[in-house]
């Protein structure tokens, strides 16, 4: 599963890695590029389909909270 994520705070990566590990998934490639006030992360996740689905949903929630915190 490849996800393109927009982070306002690059430190959010720590939470993403922690969550990935907690859900029994891993990542095989990760790149982060700054652009204007954001960071674009492209991450390839691997793991059981159910866990990947949960990870996707929880990352969406995490990114929403982070976006609101950065406002």
């Amino acid at each position: 599963m490849q996800l393109s994520l927009v982070m306002h705070d690059w430190r959010l990566l720590e939470r993403i890695v922690g969550l990935t590990n907690r859900l029994g998934c891993a990542y095989t490639s990760l790149s982060v590029k700054p652009s204007d006030a954001y960071y674009h992360a492209t991450i390839d996740f691997v793991g059981p389909p159910d866990a990947l689905r949960r990870l996707d949903a929880q990352l969406t929630r995490l990114l929403n909270d982070e976006k609101e915190m950065s406002r």
């Binding site: 705070d9 720590e14 939470r15 922690g18 969550l19 907690r22 909270d65 982070e66 609101e68 915190m69 950065s70 406002r71």
Partner: peptide, 27 residues
């Protein structure tokens, strides 16, 4: 605190203090 909160932020500049605290209440 990251994994036990919705968001955990350290304020590094006093100029950011109000924005971050207001956001903390909103979130």
């Amino acid at each position: 605190m990251g994994p036990v909160t919705k968001r955990a932020v350290c304020v590094r500049r006093v100029e950011d203090l109000e924005r971050i605290l207001r956001a903390a209440f909103r979130v």
